[in-house]
Amino acid sequence: MDNEKVKEFLNNFKLFFQGATDFNRKSQSLLMKESHNEMDDFILLCFGDILGIPIPTSYYSLELLPLIADDLDGWQRRMVSRLYIWGEKWGDFDLDA
């Protein structure tokens, strides 16, 4: 059991207790949502032409494709669900408020 696995197990153990007594889940999910929004805008700037928006510099962002390819179709779905391409997400509208 090299110490890499031990360190990883201890970290998981800490995460387990963190999950069990986790009280800032709401603030954490807000931060994650903001981070995902920023990331969606970033991908829009790089790969807008997937959605049919001509991006002059798309040649230069091809280099980033391998790192971003994983959640490309998730990104496409989120972009389509936006009210307008650069605006707030549909989910942001608290319709039942």
Binding site: N11, N12, F13, L15, F16, F17, Q18, G19, A20, T21, D22, R25, S29, L30, M32, K33, H36, G74, R78, K89, G91
Partner: peptide, 20 residues
């Protein structure tokens, strides 16, 4: 994913939360 109910969480954290 809507960042409110549906948001992916790391497995150990989720295990702790589920167990609690």
């Amino acid at each position: 994913e809507d960042g409110v109910d549906y948001c992916p969480a790391k497995a150990p954290v989720l295990l702790g939360h589920h167990f609690a």
